[in-house]
Design a protein around this nucleic acid. Structure first.
Lengths: 153, 153
DNA sequence: TTGTCTGACTATCTCTGACTATCATTATAC
DNA sequence: GTATAATGATAGTCAGAGATAGTCAGACAA
């Protein structure tokens, strides 16, 4: 028998196709439709709609709350970016960042302000409170998140 | 389900646009129009029209009383940025970041890509490797560095 | 052993209503 | 007339109910 998580995953992906890459759902409503507990929806989202797999998820609690899922744009520059993102491992030195950013700028994937923002966020100065042994991991994570954010625009 | 608060917020913001940045309302009248209790109006104002978001609110009780909302005029973006930078302490929650970024965007100090980059760099997701007790410090530091980088361009 | 599913507990946001504070106007006392 | 009290018309506060979503440990299934 097919797993519920797979069914829900398929349902959401079809919805994403129909809605051109963005869906907004209510957790309880969806759980109801599939006769499961609400937290199952969290499970599906956290295992199937991760950043690594090309999705962006946001949510809001409280009355009228909801969960929104966006799919990255994998075309055009996105392709190259996705390639870079997967090439970046778990660790990234400030120097390597600099090289990346200069490249992005040279290839006109980012403008001067964007480059400046990225440099600022990834600098040792900004990360001074992060313990040395973790700093390059955090830098990699920030870099990947920033690049992913550009692929959806 | 659409949130009433959002509807009222939108209504007031449209009114602000039409009236060039200043509106004067009567709490009971507005509550009546939206079929809610008067204190809901206070809720909307205190969550959506805060100082941080660039609004100034005054009110008068008693017969003929009313509430007035004014939107700040941000003439010099650089000054505003410097003001924010000095106002940011050593710690900054993700939620507060969100408010700031939306603000910068509303005032056209940053564009949609820059906003997206900033959100990505400041998100809990990007900072997951930073120990919880340090995360808000690191966030404050990244935010200040990014803002500084914008002031020099 | 790993991935799936559940439910109790928690966190957050919204909305409501009872109670309080303030101001303007009118009535009353002197 | 003037001072004071009463009344009515506003707005403000706050605690609690309601409506969502998130987390996590443990049961269960492939």
């Amino acid at each position: 028998m097919a797993r519920l998580s797979d069914i829900i995953e398929t349902f959401l992906k079809e919805m994403l196709n129909d809605m051109h890459g963005t869906v907004e759902i209510q957790r309880n409503e969806l759980a109801n439709r599939f006769n499961c507990v609400p937290s199952q929806i969290n499970y599906v989202i956290s295992t199937r709609f991760t950043n690594d797999k090309g999705y962006y998820v946001e949510s809001r609690r409280g009355g009228g709350g909801s969960i929104s899922i966006r799919r990255f744009n994998i075309d055009c520059a996105g392709d190259y970016l996705m390639h870079i993102i997967s090439a970046i491992g778990d660790s990234l030195s400030q120097h390597t960042c600099e090289v990346f950013i200069n490249n992005f700028f040279d290839y006109e994937m980012i403008d001067v302000r964007e480059a400046s923002l990225m440099r600022a966020a990834l600098s040792d100065k900004a990360l001074v409170d992060v313990p040395m042994e973790k700093r390059d991991n955090v830098r990699a994570s920030i870099m990947k998140n920033m690049l992913m954010s550009l692929t959806v625009l």
